[in-house]
């Protein structure tokens, strides 16, 4: 491959670099704008400031807390609901199992705004539910559950869990002993990757949350949209900067965890 380092390579590199620039430049601009005193005049002329970040924290700190809380709650729910399902799907490949998998994945295939509207129509008038943050949580769990199931299921299939379980049974392990000593430890990389995915997606979910939220339950992405619409560019940028500081480490960790979990298939 190193032999034909000719025009084709140069063209490919230039094209790829251009695409990368398209993706990265706005992020850099956003970060800079968030710490620039006056974006119109430029960072050099007006200087660097944390004033906008402080303003954002005054205005929107509650959205950050709520989003983190919902993300962690969604993680807990998807662990409790999703890991057992992945296990059941790893063990059974019958028609019923495929049907259950199909039903489970549907919330991802249907736009968030449609799901959000359906949730409001069905449950919006039930007591205090509509104004409680758990209303948003329900939507986030619907949307993230398939990712937890898929990630966990993929690793369970890659380590050939059913045979490992047969081995454990032959050595005398009953259901709970197996689940604790064989199933969970061997599925752990997939559960970790799925967990990071759930938290990342929940933190950023907007399509559904815009409909589901109320003035009392504004999440971070909804707050972002609010700031883009009604605040000056520097505040929107500073807010975005805070969001990226939360999100990017999660993305890096997610990449690492996925490589680790799904690299398994290559190693075997």
């Amino acid at each position: 491959m190193t032999r034909h380092r000719g025009a084709v390579f140069a063209a490919g590199l230039a094209f790829t670099a251009l695409v990368a620039a398209f993706l990265v430049i706005p992020v850099i601009l956003s970060v800079l704008a968030g710490i620039t005193a006056n974006y119109q005049r430029g960072i050099i002329a007006s200087g660097v400031t944390l004033l906008w970040v402080e303003r954002v924290l005054q205005l929107y700190a509650h959205t950050i807390g709520l989003s983190l809380g919902i993300a962690l709650a969604a993680l807990l729910c998807t662990l409790v609901l999703g890991v057992p399902v992945a296990y059941a799907l790893a063990r059974h490949s019958g028609r019923l199992a495929r049907l259950a998998e199909e039903a489970l994945v549907m919330p991802v295939a249907i736009p968030g705004i449609a799901t959000g509207l359906a949730l409001i129509l069905a449950w919006g008038a039930v007591g205090e539910f509509r104004t409680h943050w758990s209303f948003i949580l329900v939507g986030h769990v619907l949307f993230t559950l398939p990712f937890m199931v898929r990630s966990t299921l993929a690793v369970m299939l890659a380590v050939n869990l059913p045979t490992l379980e047969e081995a454990a049974r032959s050595l005398g392990a009953g259901f709970f002993a197996r689940f604790r000593t064989v199933v969970l430890p061997n599925a752990a990389p997939g559960i970790l990757a799925g967990s990071l995915m759930v938290v990342t997606l929940s933190l950023g979910e907007f399509n559904m949350t815009l409909l589901l939220h109320t003035p009392f339950t504004m999440t971070l992405p909804v707050g972002l949209a609010d700031s883009y619409a009604s605040m000056r560019l520097e505040i929107g940028s500073a807010y975005t900067l805070i969001f990226l500081i939360l999100l990017v480490p999660l993305l890096v960790a997610l990449q690492w965890a996925s490589d680790r979990a799904f690299g398994l298939e290559v190693r075997r």
């Binding site: 990265v24 992020v27 956003s30 950023g204 907007f206 972002l224 969001f243 993305l251």
Partner: peptide, 15 residues
């Protein structure tokens, strides 16, 4: 760089 905006929500992409 190419995968950095992975999982950026739509609002942020709009910005």
């Amino acid at each position: 760089f190419l995968t950095l905006p992975l999982a950026f929500p739509g609002v942020v992409v709009g910005f």
